[in-house]
Amino acid sequence: MKDEIRSSIVIERTYKAEPAELWDLWTTKEGFESWWGPEGFRADVHRIEGHHGGPLHYDMVAATPAMIAAMESMGQPTSTACKGCFSEFRPYERLVLTQVIDFLPRVQPYDSRIEVDFIPVAEGHVRMIVTLSQMHDAQTTTMQLQGFTSQLSKLDRRFGWEG
């Protein structure tokens, strides 16, 4: 078995809503496009199929004049194609969105995994737990860390993530 490094971030929120309302925001074109960021970008969904193994293909597009200018000044494209799929799909309970991050120069493609659990709590409230993981083969990771970390910094700049 390959040894994998898996770095995870868990973030959770509670919403006053029904599970189906939250579910739609992740699994429908209109829903996904209405919030998927990051700031300054929009997602143009080309293909989304709500079932186990269903594809989610979208372009991440710089959406504000400032972001477009920023991307151009860095010599970066203003639109990036992103491909993923719903590797788990249990309506209103849990989904896993696996995306292949294959657009970072000099970095071997790797899987980014977003697990989302929807847990009804008090009447009319749902706790949404998002677990973000990036899976890397340990050996490859060791060799790539320098490049990868520098690319992440670029990604920060690219997506305006630097605070």
Partner: peptide
Amino acid sequence: WLGRYRQVWDARLDRFGEALEARQ
């Protein structure tokens, strides 16, 4: 270091909440 990525998702889930309210 991880916190910086947490912040990205905090902002993203803020938008998620706004989108939810708009739909409601």
